[in-house]
Computed example of a mutant assay.
Amino acid sequence: MFGVIARHQSEDGKARLAAIADVPESRFWEAYWGLRQPYDRGDTAGFAYWRGVADALGTDFGPHRIARLIEADIASWSAVDDTMVALIEELAAAATPVALLSNIPEELAVHYEGHHPWLKHFRVRGFSCRIGHAKPEPGAYRWCLDALGAEPGRVLFVDDREDNIRAAEASGIRGHLFTTPARLREALCLSTGRLSTGQLSAGRLKP
């Protein structure tokens, strides 16, 4: 979802997080990303994740600061690309089945479910925090294929990260590296032979 439908973490949001943590930014982001995969996978919840970040930094955030960090983290990832959302609506109107596979912690998943009704258009929603697998782990792709009931060769996986694309292709899934909606639209028209230039798969997986 992030980097395709939702936007990447905002610079203002990143600055706010580092300011709340009150530690050097380089050290903060090393700890933030170093512990992120288990958080995305649902192995740990928000407070435990931020306590781990604090431990890695040799500090103590405390409950109030952790609550502020969780709130700021959600806000930093909350922007979406309205053009892509509109294209999702086009797909829904055209009855084109789409599914979503996203690395996302529970707190952020709850936020998206509460604020973005376009999520209902996805036949399958594979949130990493709820399926126990995070990209590029093979289990994430197996889970989605099972949920879709589709053969790998009939699925097109769209992502903005090459490592995630390679992992999908290792499972037999076709991959497309997302750069712009227009290029994805063209790729889908060529690969399916069913989509007009007015239709686009905005999801991560499509049978």
Rank of each mutant, 00 (worst) to 15 (best):
1 M>I: 09
1 M>G: 04
2 F>D: 07
2 F>R: 13
5 I>Q: 12
5 I>W: 14
5 I>H: 14
6 A>I: 14
9 Q>A: 06
12 D>Q: 12
15 A>K: 09
16 R>Y: 04
17 L>F: 07
18 A>I: 04
18 A>W: 00
19 A>Y: 05
23 V>E: 01
24 P>S: 02
25 E>K: 01
29 W>M: 04
29 W>R: 03
33 W>C: 06
33 W>M: 08
35 L>V: 00
35 L>C: 00
36 R>Y: 06
38 P>F: 02
38 P>I: 03
38 P>C: 04
41 R>C: 05
41 R>D: 02
45 A>Q: 13
46 G>F: 11
46 G>Y: 09
47 F>H: 09
49 Y>L: 01
49 Y>D: 01
51 R>T: 00
51 R>W: 02
52 G>L: 03
53 V>K: 07
56 A>M: 00
59 T>G: 01
59 T>Q: 02
62 G>T: 00
67 A>K: 08
68 R>S: 10
68 R>A: 12
68 R>G: 10
69 L>H: 07
71 E>H: 14
73 D>P: 14
76 S>R: 14
77 W>V: 07
84 M>D: 08
84 M>N: 10
85 V>R: 15
85 V>T: 11
87 L>S: 07
87 L>H: 14
88 I>P: 13
90 E>R: 15
91 L>S: 11
94 A>G: 06
97 P>E: 01
100 L>E: 03
101 L>W: 08
102 S>R: 02
103 N>K: 01
109 A>Q: 05
116 H>L: 13
116 H>W: 14
117 P>R: 15
120 K>W: 13
120 K>R: 15
122 F>E: 05
123 R>A: 09
125 R>C: 10
127 F>E: 05
130 R>N: 02
130 R>I: 01
131 I>S: 02
131 I>G: 02
131 I>V: 05
131 I>P: 03
137 E>G: 03
137 E>F: 13
137 E>N: 05
141 Y>G: 00
147 A>V: 10
148 L>E: 02
153 G>L: 08
154 R>T: 09
155 V>I: 11
160 D>V: 08
165 I>D: 00
165 I>R: 05
166 R>E: 01
167 A>F: 13
170 A>T: 10
171 S>V: 13
174 R>H: 13
177 L>Q: 08
179 T>I: 12
180 T>Q: 02
181 P>I: 03
186 E>T: 10
187 A>M: 09
188 L>G: 07
189 C>V: 15
190 L>C: 13
190 L>V: 15
190 L>I: 15
198 G>I: 09
198 G>R: 12
199 Q>P: 10
199 Q>Y: 10
201 S>D: 11
202 A>Y: 00
206 K>Y: 15
207 P>L: 10
207 P>V: 07
207 P>T: 04
207 P>M: 07
